[in-house]
Amino acid sequence: MYSEKVMEHFRDPRNVGEIENPDGVGEVGNPTCGDMMRITIRVRDDVIEDIKFKTLGCGAAIATSSMVTELAKGMRLKEAEKISRKDIADALDGLPPQKMHCSVLAADGLREAIGDYRSKNGSES
């Protein structure tokens, strides 16, 4: 039911871990729902210089986390926060319908990390 791309990211997820002293942190989901994700970012000149994730969840949750970090790395904040759940799902060659909420989690996690960075730095865009 999963695409080969999803399985590849599940097998070999990119950017797993946690950035020390990150510029922004996004934490979404909760263990009761079975999905939880933490994204940390380092930002230089409005560009996501580094990004890492930690995720508790199913195959799709791990693959979408991995994909969102791959998409966002090196992007300007303005563009990164426009990454939609569809962008993530498309980049993974699609997700089963009942797994679309996992891509929501990943997109939200990234946006929350960017929001956290902005609130700490007082910049609006």
Binding site: F10, G34, C58, G59, K99
Partner: peptide, 22 residues
């Protein structure tokens, strides 16, 4: 998480089952 365990076992050639939401 159960499904992630199941998929990982499958990659090792083991068929299993889980009661996770996924």
């Amino acid at each position: 998480e159960g499904e992630a365990i199941l998929l990982s076992l499958d990659m090792e050639g083991i068929s299993s089952s889980s009661g996770s939401a996924c």
